[in-house]
């Protein structure tokens, strides 16, 4: 049974990275999830596993407001309930067949998912927006160290080529962290490119420290 402390929002993707009508794989500390945006632009999340034969739903496809599994085409609605089983097109699927819809919200250009809906929305960070996400093969401490970061509540404050930035970390494993980089909203394209390049260099530093350790 999930503890009260499990009711927290986890940053799993950048909103701009999920186009209308597409599904992507993502990770929570509890396991793999599929995050998808319906054709009308609404965001949804559920477990990354079809209840039929366990195929990853993140390999599936979105039609309208539904997500279909690529294996047998089982079709799920926004509440996770199975709406259609193509092998038996005339039969209404039993209501118990469900791929496990999860609470999901968007804020600051980030997609946040929880296993249990927390009482509050994720805090809005004024003046910042998501730039890029990447996976760093290092511990959170090694990352904070390489980026010369300062840990604040829920994020790590850094400076990247002279710009204030924030790192959101979603810990995937002992040395695997999913990082979302937030930057000030008014940054120019060339500044964004410079920040992105700086992030690559610091990732390399964080990962090399790991090897040396």
């Amino acid at each position: 049974m999930a503890a009260e402390s499990d009711a927290r929002w986890v940053p799993v993707a950048i909103s701009a990275d999920i186009m209308d009508g597409t599904v992507i794989p993502a990770r929570l500390p509890t396991g793999r999830i599929a995050v998808w945006r319906s054709v009308s632009g609404h965001i949804y999340a559920n477990g990354d596993r079809c209840p039929h034969r366990g195929m990853r739903l993140s390999h599936g496809f979105v039609r309208g407001e539904t997500l279909s599994c690529i294996y047998h085409g089982w079709r799920f609605g926004t509440d996770g309930a199975c709406q259609k089983i193509p092998a038996h097109p005339a039969v209404a699927p039993p209501k118990t067949i469900n791929c496990g819809a999860l609470p999901v919200v968007e804020g600051n250009g980030v997609v946040w998912v929880a296993t249990q809906r927390p009482s509050n929305e994720p805090s809005h960070i004024a003046g910042f927006e998501a730039l890029r996400s990447l996976v760093i093969t290092a511990t959170p401490d090694a990352i904070t160290h390489a980026f010369e970061g300062k840990t604040i509540v829920g994020a790590t404050k850094v400076q990247l080529v002279g710009h204030d930035a924030l790192l959101l970390m979603n810990i995937l494993g002992p040395d695997e962290v999913f990082v979302i980089v937030l930057i000030e909203t008014d940054l120019s394209v060339s500044d964004r490119l410079a920040v992105s390049a700086a992030v690559e260099g610091l990732r390399r530093a964080a990962e090399t420290t790991e090897d040396a350790a």
Binding site: R32, R49, P51, G54, R56, H59, H72, I85, A87
Partner: peptide, 19 residues
């Protein structure tokens, strides 16, 4: 890309149909 890797023999784990 099927999860779990090993074939579940416990009928409660996966949902078959008449097909």
């Amino acid at each position: 890309n099927q999860i779990p890797k090993r074939l579940p023999l416990d009928p409660a784990m996966e949902t078959p149909t008449r097909a």
